[in-house]
Design a protein around this nucleic acid. Structure first.
Length: 372
DNA sequence: AATACCGGCGAGT
DNA sequence: TCATACTCGCCGGTATT
């Protein structure tokens, strides 16, 4: 039993990140509802709420909500501020903070623009106590350097650290010690488990599984029948607080760019719409020194259904013009294909995805051998 | 029978 | 009421070897 060393994992989550970044550059916003929006450009207020500060949340604004909803909720509130997304600014702050986190631990994993895991197991004896003091100082360092608050969770694996950090926000500090793992998890409704969204929650409720305690005791075979072998196993393990996944940086597996069309279309000017996307992808591929072996398109229909088509190349590419040409072909045949089915395809949003990313393959071969 | 590829779905920030 | 832009992972079906 002692041969398996326990770990000490810290989860860091920057509070209402984009909206807090906006507060940092304009302190007056701190006392007002702040809503950060992705404007789609169709109409005045078309688009969705990306995130908002806690003042806006308290009034009922939520991530993903249409901007027009949020405006209705805050109508008459002359303090409310609606701001467009400024990803470059948020990215630059994220990079500085992630550098602080990275250098605070030998093992580091950034899991999104505003979240990271640290594994500090090797450094301390009472591991969770040591990890807690690292978590405290990282929190402090982030506050001093960037004037941003974050929440932290400390536990013996990533799942528990993530559940811990989610349990108290903003500015939270939550440690789950081994003896408290089950009493922390079991009372929670299944929908609170990371990875359980509305669909999975509904399925679980339909078999009378309401809490993580229920889930933890549900027959494994039954879960595998309903959710498949993998998800069935993971649901049960996670409900029991079991997670052996390592803290490690994972290379990017796919890149995509997508835009909302000015209006739903049964066809559109592929070059005009897709060229900026492919150019952006080329830029990203080149600066990341990677190439993509699969090029695909993403279409969101007028009914908000997500459709995709893809083609795997014999040689990975970085070329924007090649990506554009393939994407245009895929869209073209996709429209034809649905015309044959008698279905008129109405597209709302159009995108390009590059996947099967492989370290650097230059488009112009240097040598004959490379060419053949 | 194993692997590759594709398209759909679900979930997260 | 209106519904972004990304990323990741799994599943089942079909094609390829």
């Amino acid at each position: 039993l002692n041969s398996i060393e326990k770990r000490a994992i810290i989860a860091i989550d920057l509070d209402y990140f984009y909206a807090q970044c906006e507060e940092v550059r304009n302190h007056c916003l701190k006392v007002r509802p702040v809503v950060v929006c992705v404007y789609s450009g169709r109409t005045q207020d078309s688009g969705a709420v990306s995130t908002c500060n806690y003042i806006a949340r308290k009034l009922g604004v939520k991530s993903g909500m249409p901007i027009a909803f949020a405006k209705r909720i805050l109508k008459g509130n002359d303090q409310a501020v609606f701001l467009p997304l400024d990803m470059e600014y948020y990215q630059s702050i994220s990079e500085k903070i992630m550098e602080i986190a990275r250098t605070s631990s030998e093992k580091f994993e950034q899991s999104s623009i505003d979240e990271a895991f640290l594994d500090v197991s090797s450094r301390f004896d009472p591991k969770l106590e040591g990890a807690s003091s690292v978590a405290r100082s990282v929190k402090q360092e982030i506050l001093l350097a960037e004037s941003l608050t974050c929440s932290v969770g400390v536990a013996e694996n990533k799942l528990l650290a993530k559940m811990a950090v989610d349990s108290k926000k903003p500015d939270g500090f939550t440690v789950i010690i081994p003896s408290e793992e089950k009493s922390f998890l079991y009372p929670l409704p299944v929908g609170k488990l990371f990875g359980v969204g509305p669909k999975t929650e509904a399925k679980l409720k339909s078999i009378q599984v309401e809490t993580l305690g229920d889930l933890a005791l549900t027959d494994q075979k039954r879960l595998e029948e309903i959710f498949g072998k993998n998800l069935g196993r993971i649901l049960r393990e996670w409900a029991n607080g079991i997670d052996n996944s390592p803290v490690e940086e994972k290379p990017t597996e796919q890149l995509s760019r997508i835009v909302t069309l000015k209006r739903d279309a049964t066809s559109f000017d592929f070059c005009e719409v897709l060229e900026p996307l492919s150019a952006d992808l080329e830029n990203k591929l080149r600066t990341s020194k990677i190439s993509g072996k699969t090029v695909g398109i993403i279409a969101i229909t007028a009914q908000l259904k997500i459709k995709s088509r893809a083609r795997t190349l014999s040689v990975p590419t970085q070329s924007g013009s090649q990506i554009l040409a393939i994407a245009a072909e895929l869209f073209s045949s996709f429209f034809e294909e649905s015309a044959e089915d008698g279905q008129e395809l109405r597209i709302r949003r159009a995108g390009i995805k590059v996947s099967e990313l492989i370290p650097e393959t230059t488009t112009t071969p240097q040598t004959l051998e490379q060419f053949f």
